[in-house]
Computed example of a mutant assay.
Amino acid sequence: MDIQRMRDSFEVVGANGDEVPLFFYSHLFLNYPETRSLFPVSMMTQRDRLFAALGHIVTNVDNVDVLVPFLQDLGRDHRKFGTLAGHYPAVGASLLATLEHFAGDAWTPELAADWAEAYGVIASVMTEAAGQSDDPAWWDARVVSHERRTLDIAVVRLEPRERLDFVPGQAVAVESELRPRLWRYYAVANAPREDNVLELHVQAHDGGPVSSALVRHLAVGDAVRLGPPQGGLVLDTTSDRDLLLVASGTGVAPLKAILEQVTQDDVARRVDFYVEARTAADLYDLESLQALARAHPWVTVVPVVSDEDDYPGEKGRVSDVVVRDGPWGSRDVFVCGAPLMVDETVKELIKAGVPEHRIRAERFAPSRPGPSAEGSLTS
């Protein structure tokens, strides 16, 4: 298998933009109509997911430690769509037809063989992981509380019917009858609890059909379905280093879960949690974080407001405030939230002497399809 040849061809195909997934799904549905029921009625937010996942696979095709867990997670996760082993050949055939159509003169028998072999491996790893999973394909849950904290952010608490085990920092996919067959990931904002309740922080975005529905129309008692937990923004349990947590927007959620986890551990460590928002009103979960700080004197919560000149506390960019309050070179660092904030904060912390390997970061983008390496091979 010529990896570079595959990467070059994928770049050529990807240059055609939205035409590529449109061709793929048209080919799939016309030639394999039995697959149509796996997908939502509207494909507007669906078309980029296949090639987002393929892009991640092609990038990491020679990195087994990254690629295999990613494919295993995809395989287990795809059970919630109703994906069966028999669907994979259809997807593979449409994928090869799409690559051939857009690769033009670059498509050769050798390249076709490379892609066929690669897809065979992908499908094998995914189906094997799906078959070995003892977890449900999804968890039925009900809404036990729904609080509108701002115009566009709601804190939603869900109670799964069966026990749903997860690691603080992970996310779960949510589907509601408000938007059938549209699944979106939301980070769980609490550590596992005896009552099995999960707290999600949902922000509505323009053009985000699921998030808008969950914020504006979901109600107590409503039924939802939850997919298997995913994501790697989790605490290194072999480390006892102090923590620096930096969040903006609903990036607060997974870091709050990690903070709750630390408060339950026997390991004594200091935690400094910086939260950035445009205005004081946007600090939607500050009261809850401050309650944790009051209960645990080794926790400090620092709100930072960027766009409100008369705010009485810290003002400006959170990256500037964090670096000023350092040094943080001895800490494990977690950064989560808006992509610009995450990138700036990581860059400035590295410049300030924090070892890059101690920084875990996740960028939250509107209607993201997955918790880390976004995408889906079928749905």
Rank of each mutant, 00 (worst) to 15 (best):
P89R: 05
P89T: 07
A90E: 11
A90R: 14
V91L: 14
V91M: 13
V91W: 12
V91H: 08
G92F: 05
A93L: 07
S94G: 01
S94R: 00
S94L: 00
L95A: 09
L95F: 15
L95M: 13
L95C: 05
L95R: 08
L96T: 02
L96H: 01
L96Y: 02
L96S: 01
L96A: 01
L96M: 11
L96R: 04
A97H: 11
A97V: 11
A97M: 11
T98G: 05
T98R: 09
T98D: 04
T98Y: 08
L99T: 01
L99N: 01
L99H: 03
E100T: 05
E100V: 01
E100A: 12
H101Y: 13
F102I: 04
F102V: 03
D105N: 05
D105M: 06
A106I: 11
W107G: 06
W107K: 05
W107S: 04
T108D: 03
T108R: 00
P109T: 10
P109I: 09
E110L: 08
E110S: 12
L111R: 13
L111P: 10
L111W: 12
A112Q: 14
A112F: 00
A112V: 00
A113G: 10
A113W: 00
A113T: 10
A113I: 01
A113R: 12
A113Q: 12
D114W: 14
D114P: 09
D114L: 12
D114S: 13
W115V: 02
W115T: 03
W115I: 03
W115K: 04
A116N: 14
A116P: 02
A116T: 15
E117L: 13
E117Y: 10
A118T: 07
A118F: 14
A118D: 02
Y119L: 07
Y119Q: 07
G120T: 07
G120A: 08
G120V: 10
G120Y: 03
V121C: 13
V121I: 15
V121K: 15
I122C: 06
I122W: 06
I122E: 06
I122G: 02
I122Q: 05
I122L: 10
I122A: 03
A123N: 06
A123D: 06
S124G: 13
S124P: 00
V125P: 08
V125W: 12
V125F: 11
V125S: 09
M126T: 09
T127Q: 09
T127K: 02
T127Y: 08
T127S: 12
